[in-house]
């Protein structure tokens, strides 16, 4: 028996049918074609599936799709505006903060959540906030530099 869900994803109203046990991640990727959100573990340990639900950062593999009903979902596909990258995306590119790139969507969503919550993080705060996003390629140094530079840029722009 499928459930009808009405939600808002990246500021657009979306309706879908889902099984009660389906995760939000599964629906985003397999039903709605939003494959920018990645699955690395399915158990909430790697952060590759990070999205926001009502502005709160979550692992979408740990959220049931039915919980999206009436909620506001933010995914990587909604970070850039139609013709321009978000500052965070630009900074990740400038700082070579990605190698294989599989963790990048989750990290960018998490970085955005961090800077919305704490526009002036210390490096240690950034490292702890992003500790839920595993990256196996970079050793995190360039990611943290991109985050700190994004904060600086966003603050100057404000």
């Amino acid at each position: 028996m499928k459930t009808h869900v009405t939600t808002r994803i990246n500021d657009e109203t979306v309706e879908f049918l889902c099984e009660p046990q389906q995760t939000l991640l599964h629906v985003l990727r397999n039903e709605l074609g939003l494959t920018g959100t990645k699955e690395g573990c399915g158990s909430g340990d790697c952060g590759a599936c990070s999205v926001t639900v009502n502005d709160r950062l979550v692992c979408s593999c740990l959220v049931l799709a039915v919980e999206a009903d009436g909620a506001k979902i933010g995914t990587i596909e909604g970070v850039a505006s139609s013709d321009k990258l978000h500052v965070i995306q630009e900074k990740y590119l400038e700082h070579a903060a990605l190698q294989c790139g599989i963790c990048t969507p989750g990290l960018i969503v998490s970085t955005k959540a961090l800077l919305e919550e704490n526009p002036n993080p210390t490096e240690a705060e950034a490292r702890y906030f992003l500790a839920g996003n595993l990256c196996r390629c970079t050793g995190y140094d360039k990611i943290i530099k991109a985050v700190m530079d994004s904060a600086k840029s966003l603050n100057q722009g404000a």
Partner: peptide, 20 residues
């Protein structure tokens, strides 16, 4: 330190990986 040409797809989630 140039901008990698495949980077845009990777920071926007458009890049297609194995399970995509």
């Amino acid at each position: 330190r140039t901008i990698r040409p495949d980077g845009f797809d990777k920071v926007t989630g458009r890049a297609n990986y194995g399970a995509d």
